[in-house]
Design a protein around this nucleic acid. Structure first.
Lengths: 230, 230
DNA sequence: TTGGTTGATGTAGCGTTGCTACATTGGCTA
DNA sequence: TAGCCAATGTAGCAACGCTACATCAACCAA
């Protein structure tokens, strides 16, 4: 009797499937259980989704919508590397909060297959590494940096889902290790600020004399106020 | 009529299952297909393995036997960190060569479940990090170092299985990034200018946001025009 | 009004799946 | 020789993904 907006039934089927998946992440689920939950017979489901994989695809799409909805809610800090950090933590947090969605989005291991919607967050990631590269802060191409971040971020998230335990210490360690690897930042023995001052002073023509003088002053101030970088 | 050694049928069932799994890694497989391949009926399979999961467990066990057989074939270099590198590469190589086994061993994501046999390679890994820690070469506890290595190693392997493409460059980058993270030996490959950018961007409050942005731009320009400093 | 098209749903049933109750066989041992 | 037990077959169950077909309501053109 109903038929409210643009196919309410379709949405309810996706919701029911997502609920069943969330109740048993990583496990299989029955289409008949989905239909029973909505109060509809199987041909209706097949009318909308064509196959079980079609329904799963729709659920995955919704998962990425949810994920990106949370992610775009946080504004950029202006620093791409810092954005990488908050993006990493958001990724892990989403996986732990939604293991059902996450295992479908990133936990299905089959050669040659990955959900099309994966490209959406991947492009955001790539834009961040590209900005970092434009600022000369990467020691690897932005594509490889993005792949490096994605692969380790997924690995650390899947592991925590399997253990059913959040391990923020491990996540932070892998995160910082990854960022250090793509930026070339490691344990320092000499202060790079002093070295940067030398380079600038040796090439006053590149920026102009006044700008160089100001740059040197700023670098010195930075060195005084950030003693941990020495 | 046969009945050669200690249950030949059991071994042949495992072999047939492994073949089917290898033919379609990550996909499901049918017990009847396994039985047909061996020329036996289902109750025989159930006599030996009790359930489908029982058969899968046996296949996984064989997968770890295979993996550890390859792994223990390579002798120790004497240096635990170097052993970590060769162990990493052996792990990735095994996953790429045996995606069917590997997805069962490390690719099944279900909260609270992981194959018992996983502990065998994990203990080898932990003994390596423990030796490294005894030599004072780790900046984190050996348990966290082992977890860090395992998680990134699995992540990089699963990704390459999904893409059905070996990416030795990415694998090596993640490997070295991970080792640098647990040993604290940062790759000193980047220029002091990039390091200065890093410090400035991490402390935008010292100079102010606009000034920091200008400073970053100047340092980047300086880097482009003074290639000899790289 | 009429008649046809289209989307949405139900009835019924197909073949396959994991699994099992039960019967049968064959070799080993008491 | 008698009995036990591991190994295997026969037959079938319930649940699964999927589909041919019919039905019904809504819309739209003649």
């Amino acid at each position: 009797m109903p038929a409210t907006a643009t196919s309410d039934t379709r949405v309810r089927l996706i919701d029911a499937a997502a609920d069943l998946i969330a109740a048993a992440p990583g496990e299989d689920f029955s289409l008949r259980a989905v239909c029973d939950a909505v109060g509809v017979k199987m041909p209706t489901l097949y009318h909308f989704f064509g196959s079980k994989q079609g329904l799963i695809d729709a659920v995955v799409e919704r998962g990425f919508d949810l994920y990106l909805g949370e992610k775009t809610a946080m504004e950029s800090s202006g620093d791409p590397i810092q954005d990488l950090r908050t993006g990493w933590d958001a990724h892990v947090a989403f996986g732990l909060a939604n293991p059902g969605f996450y295992t479908l989005m990133y936990g299905k291991v089959r050669p040659g297959y990955s959900p099309a919607a994966q490209s959406r967050p991947s492009e955001i990631l790539l834009s961040l590494t590209t900005r970092a590269a434009d600022q000369g802060r990467l020691v690897v191409p932005p594509e490889q940096a993005a792949a490096h971040v994605l692969v380790t971020n997924i690995g650390v998230t899947l592991q925590q889902i399997i253990l059913a335990t959040a391990d923020p210490e491990l996540s932070a360690a892998v995160r910082e290790g990854t960022i250090a690897a793509i930026t070339g930042t490691g344990a320092q023995q000499r202060t790079p600020l002093a070295a940067a001052v030398e380079i600038a002073a040796a090439h006053p023509d590149v920026l102009g004399r006044a700008e160089t003088q100001l740059l040197v002053a700023w670098l010195s101030k930075l060195g005084e106020r950030t003693p941990e970088t020495a």
